[in-house]
Design a binder for these strands. Structure first.
Length: 412
RNA sequence: GGACAGGUGGCUGAGCGGUCAAAAGCAGCAGACUGUAAAUCUGCCGGCCCAUGUGGCCUACGGAGGUUCGAACCCUCCCCUGUCCA
């Protein structure tokens, strides 16, 4: 592969490259000397799980790895304890050492679903940040100007709204710049929202006498709602450890518009293939639902394998298109003797958060019950009376449906 | 250290003595329609209880006290945030 081809492949799907000519020169240099580029992605383990949004940039790191460059996965175990101010309108509560360690552990296992474990250099930024003396930190701060720091949108909008900014938040980009310096990186990957931090990293590298790394930014993946970015706190995410069926279902719930975005950022489909699918849908030769099914199949296969993915599709079709019950309904055994109000039972089972909510939902017609027989073709009965009494003697095994949730109950 | 402004439900934000479980918007949940899609429309959106009603009770407008028949709203102190001055 020529340098130009490599460059085209590596920047596919990228939102921005700073600077493209520098990256090309680095690739060129690497090709001539045979010395692989050091490419890193820093991630703060602020939550125990990663979701599809994180995989966009991980996938890009893998591309570099596939091209023979050195992929460095940097665990921001130290920086996670400061908290990245990017995109937040409030100071984040700092994580404890214990939380960070626990998250880092689960993160790695998930990261290797995409990266090649053998070929990946895994580093922790506590290696160097944890050892910094206060005079070194002071010196580091001396390399950057407050006015420039306050230029960034996050801080500016907080200042305008008279919201608090804590001093330690200013330190975040400076400290993570030490990662780039310590790793002597040639390229850093990140999401577009990281732009400010990434640029600071370049500046600080230069201040410490190193050539500035090239920066490659990937777009932010929209969540299932199609509007806000995918994030766990918004609940619009697909976790990569989720069961195949859940993953499949969530992917099927995205809008038709959003599915093209997912094709672009979450699959290896080439822009050409995607364009073909699009034209097939617009000319009516393909049904968008089928195109979405194959999207879901591809993504689920990445994390669960082809077989599980095919099964997920089959289950989906059986459940939602033929009305059958899925195989793996959550089920509970219940030692219940006395008859009682249905809403109380449902709250007790965790289907609703409170008795008041359960009663409301029953009135709204959101609750169904079906006796379980040998076939898994349920005969749903709408339970719209909030005073209805559930008698365990009369219903040995039933399935409740509360909105989208299902729960199987066996009286023991 | 001083002067000033502000702290209301998941968020934004109205209310500034009773008719306030608190407007409005967003988010969320559910129903209708569908392709478990989107869009749209409808309802709900603190909790407990009775049973179905313009029903009873409890908790809640930063915290603690106070004034009042009655406080998110007035007073005092405290905590938190911001602005200006030093």
């Amino acid at each position: 592969m020529t340098v130009d081809e490599q460059f085209a492949y590596l920047t596919k799907g990228a939102a921005e490259v700073i600077r493209a000519d520098e990256l090309k020169a680095k690739l060129d240099q690497s090709a001539k000397t045979g010395k692989p580029l050091r490419v890193y992605l820093g991630v703060d383990p602020t939550a125990p799980d990663i979701h599809l949004g994180h995989t966009v940039v991980l996938r890009k790191l893998k591309h570099f790895q596939d091209m023979g460059h050195t992929a460095i996965f940097l665990m921001g175990d130290f920086s996670a304890m400061i908290g990245d101010p990017t995109g937040v309108s409030e100071t984040r509560p700092p994580l404890t050492r214990e939380q960070v360690d626990a998250n880092a552990k689960t993160y790695l296992a998930q990261v290797f679903k995409i990266l090649d474990r053998e070929k990946t250099e895994v580093r922790y930024n506590s290696e160097w940040l944890g050892k910094m003396a206060s005079h070194e930190i002071v010196r580091l701060c001396g390399h950057y100007r407050l006015a420039r720091m306050l230029e960034r949108e996050d801080f500016r909008s907080r200042l305008e709204k008279n919201h608090p900014i804590s001093v330690h938040e200013l330190l975040y980009p400076l400290l993570t710049a030490c990662d780039a310096v310590s790793l002597q990186s040639d390229v850093e990957l990140g999401a577009t929202e990281q732009k400010f931090n990434l640029l600071v990293h370049r500046d600080i590298q230069r201040e410490y006498g190193q050539p500035a790394q090239a920066v490659l930014m990937m777009p932010i993946l929209e969540g299932l709602d199609g509007v806000q970015k995918m994030s766990k706190s918004l609940g619009n995410y697909v976790g990569i450890t989720e069961p195949a069926a859940a993953m499949f279902g969530k992917l099927m719930s995205i809008s038709d518009t959003l599915m093209w975005r997912y094709y672009e950022l979450l699959t290896d489909a080439t822009p050409m293939e995607i364009a073909e699918l699009k034209s097939a849908v617009s000319t009516g030769t393909a049904h968008p639902m089928n195109i979405k099914k194959s999207l879901a199949r591809r993504i689920v296969a990445d994390f669960h394998g082809g077989e599980a993915s095919a099964q997920a599709l089959a289950d989906f079709e059986a459940q939602f298109q033929e009305g059958l019950l899925p195989e793996d309904i959550p089920s509970r055994d219940l030692a219940l003797r006395e008859p009682g109000k249905l809403f109380r039972l449902l709250t007790g089972l965790g289907l609703f958060g409170s008795n008041a909510e359960a009663q409301r939902k029953i009135k709204e017609g959101a609750v169904y019950m079906a006796e379980l027989d040998s076939s898994n073709q349920p005969c749903w009965r709408r339970m719209a009376d909030p005073t209805w009494i559930f008698d365990p003697a009369a219903h040995r095994q039933v399935v409740f449906r509360a909105g989208k949730r299902l729960l199987k109950i066996t009286i023991v």
